[in-house]
Write a protein that binds this DNA or RNA. Structure first.
Length: 229
DNA sequence: GCAAAGATTTGCT
DNA sequence: GCAAATCTTTGCC
């Protein structure tokens, strides 16, 4: 047989790849998989998998764009903990965003997962998107045509909507193969993706140099990049 | 105790 | 291209 089929054994994402420099971890995370095992109550009970194609780095208390800029608080505490854990927060009162904690405690750093390419469980992602229908969509009425498959998780809020992730997942160990929400290496034999960097998005409040540092990492040409790409 | 702003998305203009 | 939706967290009185 050729490459691994759809039932090839998953390869856990090594915590060491997240324990060092966050910018190196960002490059390691691109091309890796975000996976969620079905749980009772999940749409269709399908395993959902996406290929990570866009992340942003938030590094240290000195980073004025990071939630860690306030020092350790009840919300951001997990960022000061060990690498590999999930940090999920609510932004604008309606969208959840998933981060992967990096660097050893007590250094606060994380990678925001901004976009993934749907690989498996697309029907469950669509169902989850419909359930988590955005507040603005509800308020302004009907309209909404369903997004194409490649756009199901094409943004930080959409990743969480498609994978049914909320703040209750904060602290989940994404490197533990037993976790229902976890990271996996790309299938053996898959070529590592090309990588481009840009400044981070939506952080004008941070000021220089934080608004300009090239800490957004993406796979150029992916159809699943976030809108503000 | 209250005001302000936010690591976004969407539909309409 | 713009502004609304929505509520938690932070900052200041």
């Amino acid at each position: 047989m050729g490459g691994p089929g759809p039932d090839a054994p998953a390869r856990p994402f090594p915590r060491e790849l997240l324990a060092g420099d966050t910018l190196a971890a960002a490059r390691a995370l691109l091309g890796a998989r975000l996976a969620r095992e079905p749980e009772p109550g999940d749409p269709l009970g399908e395993r959902r998998v996406g290929r990570i194609v866009e992340v942003e780095a938030y590094i240290g208390e000195e980073d004025r764009a990071s939630h860690a800029r306030f020092g350790r608080t009840a919300r951001n505490g997990v960022m000061f903990g060990p690498p590999g854990l999930a940090y999920v927060y609510l932004v604008y009162g309606m969208h959840h965003c998933l981060n992967v904690v990096t660097e050893p405690a007590p250094r606060p750093a994380a990678l925001l997962v901004r976009a993934v390419e749907p690989v498996a469980g697309l029907a469950a992602m669509r169902a989850a998107r419909a359930t988590t229908r955005t507040a603005v969509g509800r308020a302004r009425g009907t309209g909404a045509s369903p997004p194409p498959d490649s756009r199901l998780a094409a943004g930080p809020g959409l990743v969480c909507a498609a994978f049914t992730i909320d703040r209750s997942r904060t602290g989940d160990d994404l490197c533990d193969p037993a976790s229902s929400l976890r990271l996996e290496l790309a299938p053996d034999g898959e070529a590592p993706p090309a990588i481009e960097t840009t400044p981070r998005v939506g952080i004008d409040y941070a000021g220089e140099p934080w608004t300009s540092v090239p800490w957004r990492f993406l796979v150029p040409g992916s159809p699943s990049l976030s809108r503000r790409a």
